[in-house]
Amino acid sequence: MRKSIIKHALLGLVLVGASTMTLASADQIAKGKALYLNKKAGNCIACHMIPDPDAKLPGNQGPPLVAMKARFPDPKVLRAQIWDPTVKNPTTIMPPFGKHWILSEDDIDAIVAYLYQY
């Protein structure tokens, strides 16, 4: 009985993992990357380092975006941070990308997919 619960839980974890994997197509990841780098779009690179060799000369207003899966196991939490970081920290310098229509819902999903590569 106990064993099977554990087994189910593990299966569940694998499924969650698999679903985030399959959701993120190569296209979506590429789109997220472009938005991350583009000065007129997300421009996340203005403030965050990310260990992508193409993300050169980042700013450092925000923390490095590393070990994203380990630190943000729940994609909803990551998405919420990008949607409106002032919820968590009212005095943050990070712009509210979703709330202020800077990026669309699809754009933010693409960036989330890209961030999970690191």
């Binding site: 421009n43 203005a46 403030c47 000369l57 980042p58 700013g59 450092n60 207003q61 310098i93 800077i102």
Partner: peptide
């Protein structure tokens, strides 16, 4: 602005911290 920043964000809290190359 759309980016939702104050002078204080950049020139107090953000002073001497890089925003890309600035």
């Amino acid at each position: 602005g759309q980016l939702n920043m104050s002078c204080a964000n950049c020139h107090i809290a953000g002073a001497n911290i890089l925003i890309r190359a600035d």
